[in-house]
Design a binder for these strands. Sequence first.
DNA 1: TTAACTATAAACACCG
DNA 2: ACGGTGTTTATAGTTA
Length: 247
Amino acid sequence: MDTSSHTLPSFSSSSTTLGGSLPLTSSPQLTSSSVSLTLSPVSFPPSPTSLSPATAESAHSSSPVSDFAASHCLEGQSTQNLGQVNTSDQDDLTCLSWLHQRGDLLSLQPLAKITPLPQQQTCTPGQLPSPPPAPVSSKPPYSFSSLIFMALEDSPQKRLPVKDIYEWIVSNFPYYRTATGGWRNSVRHNLSLSKSFRRIQRDKSQSVGKGSLWCVCPEYRPVLLEVLRKTHTYHSTNSNLINKPAL
DNA sequence: TTAACTATAAACACCG
DNA sequence: ACGGTGTTTATAGTTA
């Protein structure tokens, strides 16, 4: 089985969340020149989730995500890597390196700042105001790849163990607080299959708990960011047409 | 209709 | 033995 076809954070709008059943109700917002993400406070009345801290903080240009977006540079990685995709990747049918060559990633329209969820404060204490709690009945519009991406970007070290990724998602997307455990399997599945994420073997001397640390592959960062941008654009465009509850 | 992609479920192996 | 983690396979749904 060719797993490569499953590994990319595709930004084709064909995903279940992005272009599929359109279960969404939240409205992620991407901002301007920093290509950062912000949440729309009112676009989706039944907005259950909000674009996480990543998006929220980006409004302040202070979150890891926004920092990344602004700098287009990964921790320990120079920007040159962003445009670099090795030959093997380019040969890959699923290679999305062309995205890196696009010049419109910095030309997103500015959007309204959002009000972050209260849970976000648990992740980034002291940085965000407390918005009213969002309903938990609707599924967030983000693919698991996006969720993982946001979680990793929001971590100080840009890397997290699976357990912390779970916690970040639950903290920022209340839907998953009550969702059945299958989504965790999906998270692990995504981490394992997606080229966007890389496993970092923990230093045994520092190892606390099980598992490895995961980080975003720098060359796929723009791709993941584009996924978020497209998600945002899609839902912004259709917010007045689509208001379908999650499954 | 087909390909591509994502979500979900399940099975299995490994490790602490 | 158990639970968490990581990998792999299979299947279904959706869009282009």
